[in-house]
């Protein structure tokens, strides 16, 4: 658990605080709402994966006490069974709901992101959550719904709704999400570079 936590906080430190002083890099980095939510999730996930009968329940009790203020106060909900890779960053807070899917490494999640499973029809019991690859940037308010596979190196623009599979190395935007660029420059990922008209037409 500690290696994964070091990878998470280390990535956040490099991306957002590499110019700042000691206090910001080591103390404030771990204290903002997104980082606290990630720490609590890693703790709960570790206890869940441990699977030792008595100790797992004990850890689950402690985890529940920690999780309630995060869910109520910060508005970030990450279930224990979610499989999230190293280097996970939650940037702001509020409105974040991640369901029990798989997320790859180096994912960045902004505020208002929903990664949710849709129940396919009313009589089928099991909801199928999305699978997200490595190096994915989910912009503010992005919603990824259903049985969707997002490949590696994808930038999902702000306020988009992803309902279909996404290939690798693209930028998607819009409702429903369409490919707007074959670059995925995640460092500047906010809105999109100039839309390529041919791609929009071809993909619509």
């Amino acid at each position: 658990m500690f290696e994964i936590l070091k990878a998470d906080l280390g990535r956040k430190r490099e991306l957002y605080h590499h110019h700042a002083g000691f206090f910001t890099r080591w103390v404030k980095n771990a204290m903002d709402p997104g980082a606290l939510a990630v720490i609590v999730y890693r703790f709960g996930n570790w206890g869940h994966r441990l699977a030792i009968p008595g100790i797992s329940q004990l850890i689950a009790c402690v985890y529940l006490c920690l999780k309630m203020p995060i869910v109520l106060g910060f508005g970030i909900y990450i279930p224990v069974r979610a499989k999230i890779g190293k280097g996970f960053i939650i940037h702001n807070m509020n409105g974040i709901f991640i369901s029990t899917g798989e997320i790859g490494e180096n994912c960045t999640v902004q505020q208002g992101v929903t990664i949710g499973a849709i129940r396919p029809n009313r009589w089928d019991g099991k909801p199928r959550p999305p699978k997200i690859g490595n190096n994915v940037y989910l912009g503010a308010g992005a919603k990824v719904l259903g049985d969707v596979t997002i490949a590696d190196n994808v930038v999902v623009g702000a306020n988009s709704v992803v309902l279909t599979d996404t290939p690798a190395n693209v930028t998607v935007m819009g409702i429903p999400a369409r490919i707007v660029s074959r670059h995925a420059v995640s460092d500047r990922a906010y809105g999109m570079p100039e839309t390529k008209k041919e791609e929009q037409v071809a993909n619509s």
Binding site: G95, G112, A140, A158, D187, R188, A189, Y190, G191
Partner: peptide, 11 residues
Amino acid sequence: QGVTIGNVRGS
């Protein structure tokens, strides 16, 4: 509610 007004890398 739900409004984000912010800057991004490179702006």
